[in-house]
Design a protein around this nucleic acid. Structure first.
Lengths: 225, 225
DNA sequence: CACCTGTTTGATAAATTATTCACAGCATTT
DNA sequence: AAATGCTGTGAATAATTTATCAAACAGGTG
């Protein structure tokens, strides 16, 4: 997890850097708006912490400019300006959250967690499929859920990939049989059932949130709720 | 945009309802945790505003329970409890934002906008049939009416789909029996009647506007008036 | 060739849905 | 108002669908 901190007060900056690094984040700090723009628009971060009163470019303006280039990166504004007008201006500029100094570090952490969690649900990185806390690594042919790594055989992988590419859609057995096994007519087999069962053991059994759902008479569906 | 407000103080509740409706949101209010759970888990909202101190179920606990069932719905906790411990507990329970009373309405609006923006950005386009306020999701094989989600079995789904694709047309029992059950000659069965009855319970029973109409001696028809 | 892992099949118990039936209710006609 | 014929409903039963397990099979590797 990479975080960019744009903050001109050295004390606050180092306090943030140290505290966040203790939590396992990678932190880069820049001290003014120009540098902030350069780093924020060029590099990829999972989150940007932004002060409003900084040299060269005002934080509100900077927020807009960064969002113009990278609309999905979460920006949390962290400032001493605490009036409602300031806050509304901050949100209008595209910020995702707004926290007024002085603040407690624990609250900042909690808000950072929320922002980074929500993003990862939606960002489609090139070689991975994500649904909730389940990740399918298309290169390594391996799945991750929670902090567990799940090894998959070829068929299991093909089935899970099909499910994940069609999340939130009910997939009938004939559909699945065709896409995953190339079975185009009814052979009376129950491979699909068996493999769904195997997959469930691997990705759902040990977790409270079930991802694969049976729709009796219709098929199976993978989704969040 | 639909918002569910879970708040027991009538003054605050009506203030929120009125203010949000002025902004064009559809607002439903419930006054305790039990109702909150029922509505929050059964229906579909774009956002839930949640007080912590409410009757029956504590807001923190309720937040967890709702997120268990609907992990993606944004929840904003709105409460008088303002310590950092309270906030962290709120975020830990899955909340997406936390605003302390008293607050300025403009800030609440700004935060609501941020939370709902993400959703609309990534809203999946699924193919649906619509008649009045009844929606049939052909991917998820699920119906929505008003803000209730209606689960359907395979036959119920086939029957409703047939009705919706032929809205405003009287469908005779033999017609329905043929299209939905593949019954091509008179077997003396009354399955159609029974299933229409089941569908009515799910689709029409709890709503003032009935969609399925009996045309005595002719059959059934689904339409708006 | 034997072994290992992955894949498929078949059987069975459990869960869910489909259908039938009997009767209550309602409208239309006489 | 009674009779007749449709229609609505709930409970009982039949049929189907699914989950799971054990065992057979396949195919590559040492």
């Amino acid at each position: 997890m990479k975080i960019l901190v744009i903050e001109d007060e050295p004390k606050v900056a180092s306090f943030l850097k140290q505290g966040l690094e203790e939590q396992g984040y990678e932190v880069e700090v820049v001290f003014d708006g120009q540098m902030g723009k350069k780093y924020g628009t060029r590099n990829q971060y999972d989150l940007i912490l932004l002060d409003i009163v900084i040299p060269y470019i005002n934080g509100i303006e900077l927020c807009k400019q960064i969002k113009d280039v990278k609309p999905t990166v979460p920006i949390l504004i962290l400032t001493a300006l605490g009036t409602t007008e300031d806050k509304v201006a901050g949100f209008d500029s595209g910020a995702d959250d707004y926290l007024v100094k002085p603040f407690e570090f624990k609250e900042l952490l909690a808000r950072i967690k929320v922002l980074t969690k929500r993003i990862t649900n939606f960002t489609e990185t090139s070689n991975k499929l994500k649904v909730m806390d389940l990740e399918l690594d298309l290169d390594k042919k391996v799945a991750h859920r929670g902090d567990r790594t799940i090894e998959l055989t070829a068929k299991e992988f093909a089935l899970l990939e099909y499910f994940m590419r069609n999340k939130g859609r009910v997939l009938s057995r004939p559909d699945i049989a065709e896409k995953v096994w190339d079975i185009t007519f009814d052979t009376g087999t129950n491979v699909v059932d068996v493999y769904v069962n195997i997959l469930r053991k691997k990705i759902d059994r040990d977790f409270p949130h079930k991802l694969i759902h049976t729709r009796i008479g219709l098929g199976y569906m993978l989704n969040e709720s």
